[in-house]
Simulated scan of single mutants.
Amino acid sequence: MRASRTRRHVVIAAGAALAVTGLITGCTAGDTGTSSQPTNNTDNEASGDKVVIGFSGPAADHGWLGAINSAALAEAAKYDDIELKVAEGTNDANLQISQIETFINDKVDAIVLLPTDGAALTGAAIKAMEAGIPVVNVDREFSSPFAARVTVLGDNYGMGVSAGTYICEEFGGTDAVVAEIAGIDSLPLTQDRSRGFADALEDCGLEVNNRVAADFTVAGGEAAASQLLAAAPKIDALWNHDDDQGVGVLAALDAAGRSEMVMVGGAGSKNAMEAIKADDGVLKATIIYPSTQAADGIRLARLLVQNKALGDLVEVDVPNRIVLYAPVVTKDNVDQYLPTAFTS
């Protein structure tokens, strides 16, 4: 029998929808402030001075990254005062570094960057900041606080907490077998998701019994799931970090005739949400990882260059760090999230 229980301190620790950290004070290598005082402008949609923004991201080799790119382009197109220079998507860190150097040479007003590897792109981002070009870092963090003026992140640790919380509410107080299919293990975001998942499970006496890693792709998800199923003859609950690779995970489950488990997805794809709404398979929930991050980055870059702030805050500067919420989507609330879902 599944036990339902009220979550306590773990949920409190991860429940903030918007985490805002104050600006780094003092003189830094990344100081791109202007001489005039920013204004808390409640009419930020009004057209202002022209802003040239350089945008660079990884290759759109799965649905979430495709949605990231298309949302950024669509957001820029809403404003007649934005000129967007888009670099070709790449998974080659050296090529992306050269793209940032090109933006610097072109003297763009701001750069929005989703790095293929945050550590590898840190030096190039610092160079842009030192050239007086504010950098908005999206999704994968740099390894230095001086590499970005603003960082926009999904809540990776919070995703793990949300997934673990859901499973605890279903299986807490039992000896359920819990499995995990992670993304790319070398990425800090994957490590954060796994850490949050383990912390939430520990709070209700569960643990990860079987774990494999994939690569955020359909083929990778299918291969990893097949490996997992061969090693685990029984699974009660499965968290798959990413709905794109989840297409392959579900294919492997179907091929193996494994339907005994409750599966939780991650990211929030349209096909995952439609399966949750239909409620006729193992997938019962997914955890949102917003595909709006680069679009948010475009908006924030515009505000920075135009010396404006967020109209709904009393603070007169754009925040240094914004962490987006990681809610659980189930059949009870899926209609709320379907309109913003991406297609795998």
Rank of each mutant, 00 (worst) to 15 (best):
E45C: 10
H62Y: 15
I82N: 06
A16R: 04
D43R: 10
C27K: 08
A16Y: 05
A17G: 12
D80H: 06
K78Q: 13
T25P: 01
V11W: 00
D43M: 06
E45S: 13
A17V: 04
S56I: 02
I53C: 09
R8H: 14
R8A: 12
A87M: 13
V10D: 06
I53W: 02
T42F: 07
N91G: 11
E83K: 14
Q37P: 02
A60V: 07
H9A: 12
R8Q: 13
P38K: 09
N91V: 09
T39V: 15
D80R: 10
I68S: 04
H62I: 02
S47A: 14
A87I: 03
G26A: 01
T28A: 02
A60E: 08
T28M: 02
G63A: 11
K50N: 13
D80P: 11
N41Y: 12
V20N: 03
L18P: 00
A76K: 08
C27Q: 04
G48F: 03
N69T: 05
V11M: 04
K85Y: 04
R7C: 09
V20C: 08
A29Q: 10
A19R: 01
N44R: 11
A14K: 00
G30W: 02
N69K: 14
N40V: 05
G33T: 13
V51D: 00
A14T: 14
P38F: 07
A16H: 03
G89L: 05
V52A: 06
G15P: 00
N40D: 08
Q37G: 08
L65P: 02
E45N: 10
T28H: 11
I82V: 15
C27L: 05
L18D: 04
G30T: 03
G54L: 06
N44P: 01
S35G: 13
I24V: 12
A77C: 09
W64L: 05
L18K: 02
E88V: 03
L23K: 06
S35A: 06
A74Y: 08
R8F: 08
K85V: 10
G54D: 00
S36V: 09
T39C: 09
A16L: 00
P38G: 05
D43S: 14
N44F: 13
C27E: 07
C27S: 07
T28C: 06
V86H: 12
G66L: 03
A60T: 09
A74D: 15
D61Y: 08
A13V: 07
V51R: 08
T39R: 11
D81R: 06
L23Y: 02
A77R: 13
A67V: 09
W64Q: 06
A87G: 15
N69F: 05
V11E: 15
T25W: 03
S56D: 14
S47M: 01
A13E: 07
D43N: 15
L65A: 08
A29E: 08
I24M: 01
K50G: 10
P38N: 05
